[in-house]
Write a protein that binds this DNA or RNA. Structure first.
Length: 803
RNA sequence: GCGGGUAUGGCGGAAUUGGCAGACGCGCCAGAUUUAGGAUCUGGUACUUCGGUGUGCAGGUUCGACCCCUGUUACCCGCACCA
């Protein structure tokens, strides 16, 4: 009988819906398993073949867990706020809500066609007011705890579109859309104090099971460093504090550098004799984009301050101060001490401005006049007063003690992590529930007024001066201050797209709940997420933001554990057939609908799981798909040829146990390709022995069900087996039955393979050696030689070393 | 520049983590079936001058190295003057 995937797949998808086969149960006495995949942004392009790679992988895990007796929560939703939808709305004058609704419907149909076992009753959508009510609620809690605040921030400003751009929209220093000039402009923005959680975000990584490279990228992004803050007196009177990771090189400081944005510059305007030059330099720097400023290859530029000098606290030497844009206001104190002998950037600057270079750590290969000696951990301090003769490590310790004692410095930890800019001047995002009153400042909306719904607007374009389109709605903006009743104005910025995805996994637990994110009891039962899979592109920001919010919710008692995800894995990207990233412009995009239509969902799932190492990028290969179809059809065709027995046959028993073990274990480590290979090997073996019992077939259908759920259910039903496959118990293997009674071992002579011999498993070393020496080629190779050593690796190989 | 990753047949990839390199699949070759093509089935398939040689390259450790060590090259991803 031909396998008609179209009819069969639709049939089973309908049955699963009707039977609510994959609904998570609200029985908190059962062992639970929460499987999570990143919810997609429902773009107009529809599903990408990359999405099902992740979804199918955890679908396999979820289906297996259900058969292993777990109460499984495997949900899906939509991260639907965002720019592409808004841009589409602007261009076509269609409400983003309608665009979103259509895109979601399309995505959902595509996902359903793949037979993924999501619990669709728990679908969430970040743009649903019942959802973003709680996004806004969390923001209010952050605000009340002082973790949300407003700050003047430099933003990317397109001078021709007159709009604020996100960093991702700035390409090579120009606007992504119009290629106009992008400059930095100061704007007052909502910020979240994620930096307050920096240390905990590092420390708690020890509690979770993330793949190493994810932990490493989290740590690198947070960028913790230890060093010291050192106070330098200046002839202007003010104390200039710098941050350094190398306080041991303090005697090598030959000048100082301030960031162009440093507030002391204006303060010293009268004392700086060349203030006009300084001001000109600062203005120039302000007009440079981030890209221009950070372009690595560029020359160091700067202006020396005439009339103000700094004083080195360790030797009272007067040194010049420069202003240069290689020093960032946003890190450390916005000013540095320059040690050209031991820092490449300082060295370049010193060479250009002909400043002295003093070696304070000896041991470099070249003179410090020719090259900065930066990797000097093993060096010895010289020209350094009280530090002379010490190692770098000792010198750091001693100088910090010295500075602390004198009251001019102390040890200091710094992080690269910045506070999170939590505002966009856009329409299609969650309104920020804050009212600004002249008298009372920023006043939070009362929680009873949540959700603060997005009002209707005429157009979705930002205003002339870059404000959100909400700024045009005078009726909506003008409200009374909730505290004093005076006229006040609503915040018109909206939240960034990251907001909704920072806590969505909590909402799946009770998507309809209108009194809380979810009942505490339910949160305590389901959290943490047991297994979260997603792309490498989200391993820094999304993971960090959501961990931060979760820790905050833990601090205020909403959730009971500090980390949201017990385990995090990452899938590799699916590349085009040409081995490069799929993109419309390259024309190498594969549409998942086409694959499902011509091969069926089961083949599509199998292929994506079989195509390569799950964690690595893999190129799509249309010609390889049929291997999976062939395998499924071979399994399908077996149903008419079964031997009526409820036992494993002696011929296949070992193979069955081996297969159960391999599939069971491989799914746990995301090795789907080898799990499938093992089932293929089993089918090859069935061909060899020319028979398969009903018991063997049943086991195979269960093992294969998570991968190819439709075909296996249909075959199960046609065979007249009881119930559904998804209701079966996951098969168990007996380790003792996974081994053959005889093994073929390799025989080497002096490390070279000379033959093979079959011996009984677990036989003695003597027996193995005797059998090995009896092999013709081996005997020939050792004839006339002295045997120096004999190595026996039980059940694997014999190595005879002969001279 | 810094951080992370990768390198194995014609191709995608396996290899119990120091013990038979190339599982499984694609492709290809031959045969069967077929008017033919397609589909399906069976067998073969790293290279080889048949001595051997082979896991990017050069060394090292070991009875034994895709695996460990040292050096090196190429490519991919992320970050970008973080003092």
């Amino acid at each position: 009988m031909k396998y008609d995937f179209k009819t069969i797949e639709t049939k089973w998808q309908k049955i699963w819906d009707e039977e609510k086969a994959f609904a998570a149960k609200e029985d908190y006495t059962l062992p639970k398993f929460y499987a999570l995949v990143e919810f997609p942004y429902p773009s107009a392009q529809g599903l990408h073949v990359g999405h099902p790679r992740s979804y199918t992988a955890l679908d396999i895990v979820a289906r297996k867990r259900r058969m292993q007796g777990f109460n499984v929560l495997y949900p899906m939703g939509w991260d639907a706020f965002g720019l592409p939808t808004e841009n589409f709305a602007i261009k076509n004058h269609i409400h983003p809500e309608i665009v979103t609704r259509d895109n979601v419907a399309h995505f959902k149909a595509q996902l359903k066609a793949l037979g993924l076992s999501f619990d669709w009753d728990r679908e969430v959508n970040t743009t649903d007011p019942n959802y973003y009510k709680w996004t806004q609620w969390i923001f209010l809690q952050l605000f009340k705890k002082g973790l949300a605040y407003k700050k003047e921030m430099a933003v990317n400003w397109c001078t021709s579109c007159k709009v604020v751009l996100a960093n991702e929209e700035v390409v090579n220093g120009t606007c992504e859309r119009c290629h106009g000039e992008v400059i930095r402009k100061v704007k007052s923005q909502w910020m979240l104090k994620i930096t307050e959680y920096a240390q905990r975000l590092i420390d708690d990584l020890d509690q979770v099971n993330y793949i190493d490279r994810v932990k490493i990228s989290q740590k690198n992004w947070i960028g913790r460093s230890t060093g010291a803050e050192v106070d330098f007196n200046t002839t202007a009177g003010d104390v200039m504090t710098v941050y350094t990771t190398r306080p041991d090189t303090l005697y090598g400081v030959t000048y100082m550098v301030m960031s162009p944005e440093h507030p002391f510059l204006d303060k010293w305007a009268d004392q700086i004799k060349n203030f006009d030059d300084v001001k000109a330099y600062r203005d120039e720097a302000a007009h440079k984009s981030d890209f221009e400023r950070s372009e690595l290859a560029k020359d160091k530029t700067g202006v020396k301050l005439n009339g103000v000098m700094a004083v080195n606290p360790v030797n009272d030497t007067q040194i010049p101060i420069f202003v240069s844009d290689y020093v960032l206001m946003s890190y450390g104190t916005g000013a540095i001490m320059a040690v050209p002998a031991h820092d490449t950037r300082d060295w370049e600057f010193a060479k250009k401005f002909e400043l002295p270079i003093i070696e304070v750590v000896s041991g470099g290969e070249k003179s410090v006049q020719d090259e900065a000696y930066t990797e000097c951990d093993t060096g010895i301090l010289v020209n350094s007063g009280i530090l002379n003769g010490l190692s770098v490590e000792e010198a750091k310790k001693k100088i910090i003690e010295y500075l602390t004692e004198k009251g001019v410095g102390h040890e200091k930890v710094n992080y690269k992590l910045r506070d999170w800019v939590f505002a966009r001047q856009r329409y299609w995002g969650e309104p920020i529930p804050i009212i600004h009153c002249e008298h009372c400042g920023y006043v939070p909306l009362d929680e009873s007024e949540l959700p603060l719904k997005l009002p209707e607007v005429e157009g979705y374009e930002p205003t002339e001066d870059g404000e959100s389109p909400l700024a045009k709605l005078e009726d909506w903006i003008n409200v009374k201050c909730p505290i004093c009743g005076a006229p006040a104005r609503r915040e018109t910025d909206t939240m960034p797209q990251w907001a909704g995805s920072s806590w969505y996994f909590l909402r799946y637990i009770a998507p309809q709940c209108d009194t809380a994110i979810a009942p505490k009891e339910a949160l305590d039962y389901w959290m943490p997420v047991d297994w979260y899979n997603g792309g490498m592109e989200h391993t820094t920001l999304h993971l960090l933001y959501s961990r931060f919010w979760h820790k905050f919710l833990y601090d205020i008692g909403v959730v009971s554990m500090p980390e949201p995800y017990a385990k995090r894995t990452s899938h590799g990207m699916i590349l085009g057939e040409d081995g490069v990233k799929m993109s419309k412009s390259r024309g190498n995009v594969i549409n998942p609908d086409d694959i499902v239509n011509s091969y069926g969902a089961d083949t599509m799932r199998m292929y994506e799981m079989f195509m390569g190492d799950f964690e690595k990028a893999a190129p799509w290969k249309s010609s390889s798909i049929k291997g999976c179809t062939r395998f499924l059809e071979r399994v399908w065709a077996m149903q008419d040829k079964l031997v009526d027995s409820d036992k494993y046959s002696s011929k296949l028993e070992v193979m069955m146990h081996k297969t159960i073990r391999k599939v069971t274990e491989d799914i746990e480590v995301l090795a789907f390709n080898t799990a499938i290979a093992q089932m293929m090997t089993l089918m090859n073996e069935v061909d060899n022995v020319k028979s398969m019992t009903k018991a063997e077939y049943k086991t195979l259908l269960i093992l294969l069900n998570p991968f190819a759920p439709h075909m296996t259910e249909e075959a199960w039903e046609l065979c007249g087996f009881e119930g559904r496959v998804y209701q079966q118990k996951w098969p168990e293997f007996d380790p003792a039955k996974c081994v053959d009674s005889a093994v073929e071992i390799a025989v080497q002579v002096s490390g070279k393979l000379r033959g093979r011999v079959t011996i009984p498993r677990d036989c003695s070393n003597e027996e193995a050696l005797a059998a090995a020496k009896a092999v013709e080629e081996v005997a020939a190779a050792i004839a006339g030689k002295t045997i120096v050593k004999e190595i026996v690796v039980p059940n694997k190989l014999v190595n005879i070393v002969a001279k």
